[in-house]
Each structure stands twice: as structure tokens, then as C-alpha cells.
Design a binder for these strands. Structure first.
Length: 791
DNA sequence: AGCACGCCGACT
DNA sequence: GTCGGCGTGCTC
């Protein structure tokens, strides 16, 4: 993204308020350590301020402290202990800090640093860029399961002190002991008696724990506590989770692939080759149409890197983390770790450790996999880089694609951003020469792009359901010819709204300012914002009129229409309602692949990445769903969705067709998507962005205030906006404050304010300090840099 | 974030 | 005269 590069170009992003100290304070080796002995460490704690604090590490802790380990330190007047990350060590305290105020580190938590110097640097960049504290960035990078050391525990073991051991061995001790006590000593002084628990010893010595307790009281034996590693504790719970991915032998075993690259793929790979073989940051945008075989290019690129003994990270949107994708990587590489979002803490911890120990060649995962603790990273791939799921919607609100570019820069490795429909940000970066663009304009085996027909719903007569005559006829034809059909409708539920024909009110969620969706299967109105359910009201909640009108079509209703129209062809609905169960996703796709299901209909989860050669028809039931949302990316999203789903057909020997139903056939997003013409879309869309200082021409930071008291939220944001306006440089444009497009979610009212500017520094300067006016109680402020959702 | 310090209104 | 309001600032 543009700013990633702007930062490269010079101005560095430092976290707010952090004192950047000259390297001199680290001191040279000839400098005497401070009088107290030990060393001084800078510690970042996860609090709302992000000043690194200096602590003194007493002698006995010095050996264990390194940057990247966590420490317990006293903080505040009462000196309560908090956990923080050691970020640097030195022999002298920083100048200008009263030595008397420096407190001691209480404890070192990790034997091994959780992150290395480069990842520390990455988190510091994130804190500065995304306007969060360094501690928050660090906590995003180290999974909770790793922090909690999930899967490990503290064990208590018995030992015999050296003098007692000698006394036992020369026989002088034995006389003073009972028979049972002697048995215990015998067990503990065996060569394998090193790490035994009380119960181990009692079992072997055939005695009760009382005997052991007695010996402990007499001081003949001692106890030590030791943390059991993942492996150790696994031995004791043999029936727990599966072994780490690295240890899994893939099924089937990786075969040396027959390298059958198309000339275009080879050309693409050739363009990457110098970067893959060299050392250095090199960002690429792989612009390849759907079906051009981008994945094969990634795989070959990764192979080269792995062959050099390096590791690769592959980011994919969560939704395409399908068994299909995973199998493809497993087939090709021996040591693959897959990081799903639904791993348990223990599994995540295990993966982390195994990656950190260099047991993994390829890490495949969603968003947070960008933080994988690889040892010798050689390549980062971001597939479907335009996907908005790479943006995290909680603090720190990072964009994994942009973090990937930054990480690649810090590690000095190439990064491949791939898409058939690149984000305008990445496209602009390529145009500006920041990324090298690699074009893959044609499909493999010379297959044509599918023909796309636009169906103007304004002229469509007698539409009772979601399918126009032409689309329905095309479906019949495709099915009669033995083909399969994909129908996209990006809206769940049966009816999308319930309206009173008398007063015109729409039935809303009780907790959100959003129309409730009728789910016929459950006979309920469900809020798609907060999932709250309510019974279908017998009469209008506003005017009590007896009859309510149910309107709008969702996937559930489309499914019914398809079942009625095509009773002899199996159809399957895929949306988050039908795909709730684990494995249902895989099962549905398998049934479609096998041909048992002929019609696959669903939300965007069927629009992307699927590769089924027998699909000869794709229908977009309502291309306009996202087109009129109050978001400057509405057109871009619409274009991407239509272009992506159109790409699901024509992937086999038979040509594919696409029908796109719309009320806006002349809108550029839909028109250009129908022609598979990304560049024309971009050419007409980019100028629209420039005027409004929208991305990629401007930087946007969105401030959202929310709370249950509408007046207080509004008042606060108004006041904050006034304060900022007074402080802002003239180049900063203010949009708002105003109510957010969705005014209320889960009983909280939301107001937002957008700040836009052609460059980042004025925004950063302005937003460095948001402490005054302070948010009133029960009002929270969210700062979203490079927002992806405006709702 | 917590938590203390600090400087102006209505109370014993 | 004091208890307590929450604005301001600090946390090594």
C-alpha cells in the first residue's frame, strides 16, 4: 500500500511518543557497568501508552534476558507486576533518567525469545503506522496460546542434594532410614532417577506419599519445579491433539512435480527469478486473470526458495483455506504448516514452536500467518491480495498485505501479491514503479474467457423470483448439456426485509439500526449485524397493521426457487447458515466436484478460488447488492466479485458462459467486469478517487466513537473533531463528524469522522495525541488507519 | 488503561 | 474550613 512505500522513501514511522535514543547509551564493552551491577533493559508493556520503560535487570536475571523475552516488572505507584516485552538491553541507563526511579525486573518468563529483532522492528512499525501502542502490536504478533504457553505446565520433581546422594552411596545414610525411606532413596539415586514426580517415586518404591513427605521434611530430598515442554507434557496425555503439521507425513507423499509450466507461467517465473535467487526486498504484483495459473507460479517460486534452505509464508483469505488449497501445498512440499483460524491454543503453540525451530518449509495461513516466526524467511506470497479479509477489524487494525510488504522489506526478501482483480492500491503502486508488475493475461491451455451477458432487470417482465427467463433458460441448457451451474447471490436468508405496507416501516433488529432478515427454515427474523433473533411479528410493530409484506430475495429463497424449477437436478446451497458444521464446506464441494450436485448456489464463499472444470454456467443473481453502499470502494468490490465469480467457469474443455443480472448494466463496475476488462475499470475508477483524496490518492484515517448514550457519543466526537480541526494542517480534509452508515450496532450508537490527506505525515502528527478531550465514560474511540469498511 | 495529583463548588 | 468533582499527566 502506498504508505508502506512512502515510509520506505524516507520518513520513518515511529510509534507515538517513543523516545528514540542514540545507540550510544548501549555502551561499549569497555564501559563499566552501572554501580548496581546487572544491566538495563527497555521493556514495553501492553498499556495504552507506548513508551518503552527502562528497568534494571539484577545480576542473577541478566543471563536470561534478551530482546524478545517477556519479563514481569513492577509498574505504577503500588508496584503491581505486569508483563512486558524486553526490546533492548544495555549496560547503562538512558541519559536524563533519574537512576533512583529505575525499578528491578522481577522475573524472566521465557527461556527463549518469542520474537527476533526483525519482528520487534516490524511491531514497532505497526504501532507507528496503525496508531496503536507497541504493546498491542506485540500481542497481535505473539498468539495467546504461545503467551500462555498452552500445552505446557509446571511439574514438581524430586531430587537428592549432592551431600545426601554421597551419604546414600557410601552407605552412611542408609542406617538412619526406614526400609521404605531407603527404597525411595534407591529409586532416586538410580541413573534414570533424574526427573521423577512424587507419584513416580511412590510407584517405583511401592510406598505412600507420606514417606516422601517425611524425607522432604528432613531435608534428605528436595523438590524442583520445571516447566514441561510441549513434547514432555504430550507424553503424559497421549490421546490429545494431533502432532504438529511439520511432523505429519503428507498424504500422498510429495512427488517431484513434472514441471509443466505454460509459456506464460514460465515467463512470469523468469521475471521473478533474479529476486528469488538474490537477497533483497523485491515487491511484485502478479496480475493474472482467473484461470491463468497463478498458484503454479507461486508454487514454483516457493520451490526455488525452499531449495535454498529458506522458508516461505503464503497468505490466503480465510475463505480459500480449503482442503483443496491445503492438499495442493502438501502434495508439493514436505514440511507445511497450515494456520487456520480455528486452531486451539495448544495447536497454535505447537505450530509456532515448530516453525521457530526451523521444522517447517512453508507456512500457509490467513491474516495472522504473516507473523509466523520463521528462521530464514525467503519469500512471502499474498494470494488474492485485494481481499478485504486481510484487514483485521480489531486493534491493531492492520492489513496483512501491507504488513507483508513491510516485513519483506525488513527481512530483505521478495513478496508476491497476486490477484486477477488487484486492489487499486496495489495497482497504483505498480504504476508508480514501486511494485514490479507481472502480467498473466491469458488462461492456461489457451482457454477463452467466458462470454458474459448482462441482463437488464429493468426490462425484465414477469420476474416472480430471482431468476430471469434468460438465466433460467441458460441453466436448463447448461444442465441438459451435462454441465454444472454456479449461482451467486451475496445475501443470506429468505426475505431480506419485512415491511409494513401501511406505514412503510421496516422491521428492524431490536439492538441494531438494521433491517432484520427473514429466515424461513427457522421461522425467525435474524439480524445480520449482531445475530439477534426475533419472532416474526404478527402485526406491524409500529402501526399495528395486520399484514406485513415480506420482500427481497436471499440465498434461502433462491434455493427454493431452484428446487421448484429444476426438480431433477440436485442443488446445494452454500452460505454461512448451511456451512456451520465442521467439514460441511469440504463435503459440499466434494459433492459438487463428483457431479452429485449439479447446481451450486450461495454467497461469496462460492465466488472465489473454486476450480471445477465442468462448470459451464455462472449466474450472478443480483450484481447490485454492494454497488450502492456508502463506501468509496463499492464499485471496486462489485467489479471484483463479478469478475471473480465469472472466472469460475470455462475452466475445462468446454467454454463457459456467465449471466449477470443487474439494474445498473451501464455502471462501469459491472460493464467492465462483463468484459473481463480490469484495466478499463481502473482507468475510469481511479480519477473518481483522486478528487476525494480517497485511497490510493490519499491516506484515510477513520475515527469511530461508539457508546449507548447517543448524545454523549455525538457530543464527544463533535468536540474531538473541533479540537483536531484547530490543530490540523490545511492539507488535512475532514469528512464529518456524522452518524456512521449503520447508526446503531448492539445497542451502541456510532458516529464517525474521516480524515484524509494526500500524504501520511500530517495525519500522523495530528493523531499522535488523542487524549484530549478525553472520551467520556462508556464511550470508546476506534482509530482505523486505511479503513476497509466504512459502515 | 489505571491511578494520583490538583484545583474549584456545596456541605458538616 | 473540608469532601469530592473530573481535567491533566505519568507510568522506568
Amino acid at each position: 500500500m502506498s504508505v508502506v512505500n512512502q515510509d520506505q522513501d524516507g520518513e520513518d514511522a515511529r510509534p507515538r511518543g517513543r523516545t528514540v535514543r542514540p545507540p550510544s547509551w548501549f555502551g561499549g564493552e569497555d564501559e563499566a557497568p552501572a554501580a548496581r551491577g546487572g544491566m538495563f533493559v527497555e521493556v514495553v508493556v501492553n498499556r495504552a501508552f507506548d513508551q518503552a520503560l527502562t528497568y534494571h535487570a539484577p545480576r542473577k536475571l541478566v543471563a536470561g534476558i534478551r530482546p524478545g523475552v517477556r519479563v514481569r516488572v513492577p509498574l505504577g505507584k503500588r508496584g503491581g507486576l505486569v508483563t512486558g516485552y524486553c526490546v533492548s538491553i544495555g549496560l547503562l541507563p538512558p541519559e536524563g533518567l533519574d537512576p533512583a526511579r529505575i525499578k528491578d525486573v522481577a522475573e524472566v518468563l521465557d527461556a527463549v525469545p518469542l520474537i527476533d529483532a526483525r519482528m520487534l522492528e516490524l511491531t514497532r512499525w505497526m504501532a507507528g503506522y496503525y496508531l496503536c501502542s507497541w504493546g498491542q502490536a506485540l500481542d497481535a504478533v505473539v498468539p495467546a496460546g504461545v503467551r500462555k504457553q498452552a500445552g505446557t505446565r509446571i511439574g514438581t520433581f524430586l531430587t537428592v542434594p549432592e551431600d545426601a546422594r554421597r551419604a546414600w552411596l557410601d552407605g552412611s545414610l542408609e542406617k538412619t532410614l526406614t526400609a521404605k525411606q531407603a527404597a525411595v532413596l534407591d529409586v532416586l539415586c538410580q541413573p534414570d532417577g533424574g526427573m521423577l514426580t512424587v507419584s513416580d517415586v511412590c510407584r517405583r518404591a511401592r510406598c505412600g506419599s507420606g514417606v516422601v513427605d517425611g524425607l522432604r521434611k528432613d531435608g534428605v530430598i528436595h523438590t524442583v519445579k520445571r516447566r514441561l515442554s510441549l513434547e514432555d507434557s504430550r507424553k503424559e496425555e497421549p490421546d490429545d491433539a494431533p502432532p504438529p503439521a511439520s511432523a505429519e507425513s503428507p498424504t500422498p507423499p510429495p512427488t517431484k512435480p513434472k514441471l509443466l509450466l505454460t509459456p506464460e507461467q514460465q515467463k512470469g517465473l523468469d521475471a521473478l527469478a533474479p529476486a528469488l535467487q538474490g537477497d533483497g526486498f523485491a515487491p511484485f504484483l502478479i496480475f493474472g486473470v482467473t484461470g491463468s495459473g497463478k498458484t503454479e507460479v507461486y508454487l514454483s517460486a516457493i520451490e526455488q526458495v525452499v531449495a535454498r534452505g529458506r522458508e516461505a509464508i503464503v497468505l490466503v483469505p480465510e475463505i480459500s483455506l480449503t482442503p483443496q488449497t491445503i492438499r495442493r501445498f502438501r502434495r508439493r512440499f514436505k514440511k507445511v504448516a497450515v494456520l487456520h483460524s480455528h486452531l486451539s491454543d495448544v495447536e497454535r503453540h505447537r505450530h509456532w514452536r515448530s516453525i521457530a525451530q526451523g521444522e517447517v518449509d512453508v507456512v500457509v495461513g490467513a491474516r495472522s500467518a504473516i507473523f509466523a516466526p520463521t528462521r530464514r524467511l525467503g519469500l512471502i506470497v499474498v494470494d488474492e491480495e485485494h481481499e478485504s479479509t486481510f484487514k483485521q477489524e480489531s486493534v491493531p487494525r492492520y492489513h496483512a498485505r501491507d504488513v507483508a510488504v513491510k516485513r519483506a522489506q525488513l527481512e530483505g526478501v521478495p513478496v508476491l501479491l497476486g490477484s486477477a482483480t488487484p486492489s487499486l492500491e496495489s495497482w497504483a503502486n505498480a504504476e508508480r514503479g514501486r511494485y514490479v508488475k507481472v502480467d498473466m493475461p491469458s488462461r492456461v491451455e489457451g482457454r477463452p474467457m467466458p462470454a458474459v451477458e448482462l441482463i437488464d432487470l429493468r426490462h425484465e417482465k414477469n420476474m416472480t423470483g430471482g431468476l430471469s427467463d434468460s438465466l433460467r433458460n441458460a441453466m436448463h441448457q447448461a444442465l441438459d448439456d451435462g454441465g454444472q451451474v454456479i449461482l451467486l447471490l451475496n445475501r443470506r436468508g429468505y426475505n431480506t426485509f419485512v415491511i409494513c405496507p401501511k406505514c412503510g416501516d421496516v422491521v428492524k433488529c431490536r439492538h441494531c439500526d438494521v433491517a432484520a432478515t427473514f429466515h424461513k427454515g427457522r421461522r425467525l427474523l435474524i439480524c445480520h449485524m449482531c445475530d439477534a433473533e426475533r419472532a416474526c411479528p404478527p402485526a406491524c410493530p409500529s402501526c399495528n397493521a395486520a399484514v406485513l409484506h415480506y420482500g427481497g430475495i436471499g440465498t434461502e429463497r433462491l434455493e427454493r426457487e431452484v428446487l421448484m424449477e429444476f426438480p431433477f437436478h440436485a442443488a446445494r446451497r452454500m452460505d454461512s447458515d448451511t456451512m456451520r458444521r465442521h467439514g460441511s464446506h469440504e463435503e459440499a464441494l466434494a459433492a459438487f466436484k463428483a457431479g452429485d450436485v449439479r447446481i451450486l448456489l450461495g454467497t461469496q464463499m462460492i465466488a472465489k478460488g473454486l476450480d471445477f472444470p465442468n462448470v459451464t454456467l455462472v449466474g450472478v443473481v443480483d450484481a447490485d447488492v454492494a454497488l450502492h453502499l456508502p463506501d468509496f470502494r463499492a464499485a471496486e468490490r462489485t467489479f471484483q466479485l463479478v469478475a471473480q465469480v465469472a472466472g469460475r467457469t470455462g475452466r475445462g474443455d468446454r467454454p463457459g458462459r456467465v449471466f449477470v443480472q443487474t439494474y445498473s448494466p451501464e455502471s462501469p463496475a459491472i460493464l467492465h467486469a462483463a468484459r473481463h476488462d480490469y484495466e478499463s475499470f481502473v482507468t475510469q475508477e481511479l480519477p473518481q478517487r483522486a478528487g476525494g483524496l480517497a485511497s490510493p490518492y490519499g491516506r484515510i484515517v477513520r475515527l469511530v466513537a461508539r457508546g449507548r448514550d447517543e448524545g454523549r457519543v455525538k457530543g464527544y466526537l463533535d468536540e474531538l473533531a473541533a479540537t483536531l480541526r484547530a490543530r490540523a494542517e490545511a492539507s488535512v480534509r475532514f469528512l464529518g463528524p456524522c452518524p456512521a452508515p449503520v447508526l446503531k450496532i448492539k445497542e451502541e450508537f456510532r458516529f464517525h469522522l474521516q480524515l484524509r490527506c494526500a500524504t501520511a505525515p500530517p495525519l500522523r502528527a495530528l493523531l499522535r495525541d488523542l487524549s484530549s478531550p478525553p472520551a467520556p465514560p462508556k464511550v470508546e474511540l476506534a482509530v482505523d488507519v486505511d479503513p476497509v469498511s466504512m459502515l
